[in-house]
Design a protein around this nucleic acid. Sequence first.
DNA 1: AACTATTTGTTCGTATGTATG
DNA 2: GCATACATACGAACAAATAGT
Lengths: 239, 239
Amino acid sequence: MVNFTPVKHMKASDEIGNQLKNAIFEGKYVAGDKLPSERELIELFQISRTVVREAIKGLEASGLVEIKQGAMGGAFVKLMTFERLTNVCQELFIMEKMSFAEVCEARLQIEPMVAKLAAQNCTPEMAEKLREASRNEEHILDYPDTVYLRQKVHYILADMSGNRFLAAIVKSLLQVISNATTKFEPSHDKVHPAGLHDGIIEAVIAQDGQQAEAEMREHLQAFTLRLNVVEKDYRDTEK
Amino acid sequence: MVNFTPVKHMKASDEIGNQLKNAIFEGKYVAGDKLPSERELIELFQISRTVVREAIKGLEASGLVEIKQGAMGGAFVKLMTFERLTNVCQELFIMEKMSFAEVCEARLQIEPMVAKLAAQNCTPEMAEKLREASRNEEHILDYPDTVYLRQKVHYILADMSGNRFLAAIVKSLLQVISNATTKFEPSHDKVHPAGLHDGIIEAVIAQDGQQAEAEMREHLQAFTLRLNVVEKDYRDTEK
DNA sequence: AACTATTTGTTCGTATGTATG
DNA sequence: GCATACATACGAACAAATAGT
């Protein structure tokens, strides 16, 4: 049996798009590198400018490169970050592939576990960072637009877990919940009692994983329960 | 203070790409719908062919539409699935933004929890589905290329959790681990003792969440430990 | 400040490929 | 086989942004 190869042609733009993509995945181009210019790609692939541009447009839409115009411009490989995960989560939520309740439940399940890991990995430097974040929470009212501060403790704990994937998931969920919440409860940012995270923080610093997990669960449960009700009301009034 | 609006222009292709994207997010076009044809878009946006094509190419790369050519062709809105989450996870892994060990650990943390949820939601129909999947596992050797069968129990349990986000995460992790494993241990598919999941399945059917969680954790721990070693060896020999 | 070179952004005209009826 | 409707591809030109001289 002769091993004939299929003659199916991909679209030219997909073909060269894939070649460039693979080159990036293989590390031939790393973050900050410039891909060959359009004219060069025309030469390299022996193909028209239109096709080259469509291919690069695809890479841009996939979040792999950033295009700058002008002299010294071109398609630059972007630093691959977990931001892409967050974007996908956000889109899945918008497209109603997951409900607010599901997102909250996922957070309720995962974040306590992450807090436990954080407690197990807690170092003196991390402990100080946590304490500082906690102290700053009291000043949030002075900077009403720093949503980040409100969530800073959660972000730090996520990073402390030592698992970049889990950290990214937690941050993505936080982001989705935060975006949704400001939609149906614009005043939410302003109500945030100081010292809210103290229980969690102390447990983590004491490296008491069990306790950290329990404190985080309790912290989220009250919060989540109320939000779910508010969100449901909001959805009902929408109709 | 007059509320002047910024005059910064986006690229035309991005501009109309965003408008189309938003229309999709807002449900103006749903899965299966056809976007206006290139000619129509030219009319609607009063813009050139090339720009329209680049915009649509962007949507295609983002996974939002699928382009068919020929009469009755055009850009059709794709059904938004969790596949996108899996793709991003796969890419993050390839780009070394997360290690094999981290992926395994995440699975080890999340899947037992999902098994617990599955146990809490177990219905008679689901129980039967699980039993059938378990029985079929013995026949896997007859169909060596059905990777899916090997993981079927895990997939069913994920769906049983009742949380689409958690299910998607579990499936994505499974996929990443599976892809990586076949790289450094091609023979892996063939070794899969029958009845491996029986402990988990029985606990889930008995609706014993605690037990299901424990069984799943044990099931994964042995598996994970060995794989981590094999993977490390593989990485070392690569250099 | 003005000029030049380089690179991407946009347009138009034309031709070809592909699927439907 | 043919007409139609659509996407794919090419090439030439001009516009706009940016960096360096």
